[in-house]
């Protein structure tokens, strides 16, 4: 759907999509990195299971929601991709068990 302009230079960032290794350009948002990697969709909807992909790229539409490092429903168009990031596409309503693995600390 998208291709990268040639000769942009810049540093490369390694990350994974559903466990598969991928690379992005430092400065990409996660959504841009997904588009550049040739991903068609980033999630399926909790209502009908239809596939969705980034739509507005500016934090409005919430279509680009993915799980990042175990934390779900992140707006991928607002978050810069980082070295070693584990990105998971979301299938319907997220299983709550996977959220348990994302430990936070409530003081």
């Amino acid at each position: 759907m998208f291709r990268r302009l040639p000769d942009l230079g810049g540093e490369t960032v390694n990350f994974t999509i559903d466990g598969r290794p991928a690379t992005a350009r430092l400065g990409d948002t996660v959504a841009a990195a997904l588009l550049a990697s040739g991903m068609e969709s980033c999630r399926t909807t909790p209502v009908s299971g239809a596939p969705r992909a980034p739509y507005c790229m500016m934090g409005v539409c919430f279509e680009c929601l993915v799980t990042i490092n175990g934390i779900g429903n992140r707006q991928s168009c607002l978050i810069p991709v980082a070295e070693g990031m584990a990105i998971e596409t979301q299938k319907g309503a997220r299983s709550i068990a996977s959220e348990y693995s994302a430990k936070g600390d409530a003081a």
């Binding site: 709550i96 348990y100 430990k103 936070g104 409530a106």
Partner: peptide, 16 residues
């Protein structure tokens, strides 16, 4: 309120 849920239902901690 959120802290109470955090304690009682640990699996809810990452929900939005």
């Amino acid at each position: 309120n959120a802290k109470t849920v955090w304690d009682l239902f640990p699996i809810m901690r990452g929900t939005t």
